[in-house]
Design a protein around this nucleic acid. Structure first.
Length: 329
DNA sequence: CATAGAGTAGGGTAAATTCG
DNA sequence: CGAATTTACCCTACTCTATG
């Protein structure tokens, strides 16, 4: 489920590291051929000095280039700046898991940062990794610097969260709505950018059709409803049955009904509480149970006490069934 | 532990509908 | 009208429970 989306998003960014490395490999090598020795030490020194100076300049340029975008660099934690509201919430267990992982292993996925004019770096993705590095009292962290605008930065941050976490559909909706407003792109374009399908995004956007009070409720229990039910409830709300939708959302938030039932409730006014499991009926032989019969939809099941009992009636049952099948009964 | 069926949610395809 | 969006219909994956 959620995690097909995750897989697709992963697939889209999977080879980022390779791309970065390939770009780095294309750069001209810094190593220059050692110049021939010249007669006279002075001349030789001068040449050496020039060569070193050139190397230093090239390294500085390289660093600058890396700072702007591409290669992984080590950044002191003091130079990292965080933007509020971008952090993906982790459970305490997840935090511990992450910390223990980072304590014993190298950082396999460098964080992503954006160079700021003042020489510091804004964290795009990797707030939690950065936190754990602080906890572990490390002073530097591997990071990929990428040049981007403010809008691009929040879009990237959102996409990073989208693919990493178990965001509820409501939270996804909020992120996508923000993106749509800020970029002015169509749903189709945003869908293509993020790797989700157009209809999935459409279903997600149906949150706007729910009554505001229903949204308030969902905000407190975001996982109670998925995009499928939202799109249907949204349609019902647009028909003017806002009250029915609100009641359905309340019932959902309290866990009284399934999403399916909530939709039926809003649409038909049908109030059926969760799944009625079929109840087995015992067929008694005196005081002991001879067999139990359980019926559900297209299934009729008979459980006997012994295999012998089953064998005894099997042929008779088959015979009756054949008669039904032939339309004789 | 393995298996089976019911119930549920998610989401894909393509047709229908709405928008500009 | 064509593009964008929504919906109907459907399949699949997963959970839960009962049972062998």
């Amino acid at each position: 489920m959620a995690n097909k989306l995750k897989d697709r998003l992963m697939a889209r960014t999977a080879n980022l590291a390779e791309k970065v490395e390939a770009a780095a490999a294309d750069r001209p090598s810094i190593a220059d051929q050692r110049p021939m020795t010249m007669p006279g030490q002075l001349g030789a020194f001068r040449l050496e000095a020039q060569r070193y100076q050139r190397q230093i300049d090239e390294l500085a340029a390289e660093l600058e280039k890396a700072r702007k975008s591409g290669a992984v660099i080590e950044i002191p934690l003091d130079l990292l700046v965080e933007v509020p509201g971008r952090r993906r919430a982790l459970t305490p267990e997840q935090k511990i898991e992450l910390r223990e992982n980072l304590r014993h292993n190298k950082l396999t996925h460098p964080i992503t940062v954006r160079p700021l004019p003042d020489g510091r770096f804004e964290v795009i993705s990797g707030h939690n990794r950065t936190d754990q590095y602080r906890e572990l009292r490390r002073d530097k962290i591997s990071a990929v610097p990428i040049e981007m605008s403010d809008a691009e930065a929040s879009a990237s941050a959102f996409y990073a969260n989208l693919l990493q976490s178990d965001l509820s559909d409501y939270e996804k909706f909020v992120g996508f709505q923000d993106l749509l407003e800020r970029t002015g792109k169509t749903q189709a374009e945003i869908a293509a950018d993020s790797g989700i399908s157009e209809n999935t995004l459409s279903r997600l956007m149906a949150f706007v059709d729910l009554p505001p009070t229903a949204i308030e409720i969902i905000r407190t229990v975001p996982h109670c409803i998925g995009s499928s039910a939202v799109s249907q409830l949204g349609a019902i709300a647009r028909e003017g049955k806002a009250d029915a939708v609100l009641n359905a959302v309340k019932a959902l938030a309290e866990g009284r009904v399934t999403q399916d039932a909530a939709v039926r409730m809003a649409r038909d006014g049908e109030v059926r509480v969760k799944a009625t499991r079929p109840t087995p009926v015992s067929i008694k032989s005196g005081k002991t149970t001879y067999c139990t019969v359980i019926a559900a939809n297209k299934t009729l099941r008979i459980d006997f006490k012994t295999e012998e009992a089953r064998a005894a009636v099997e042929e008779a049952v088959k015979k009756i069934l054949s008669e039904f099948a032939a339309g004789d009964r």
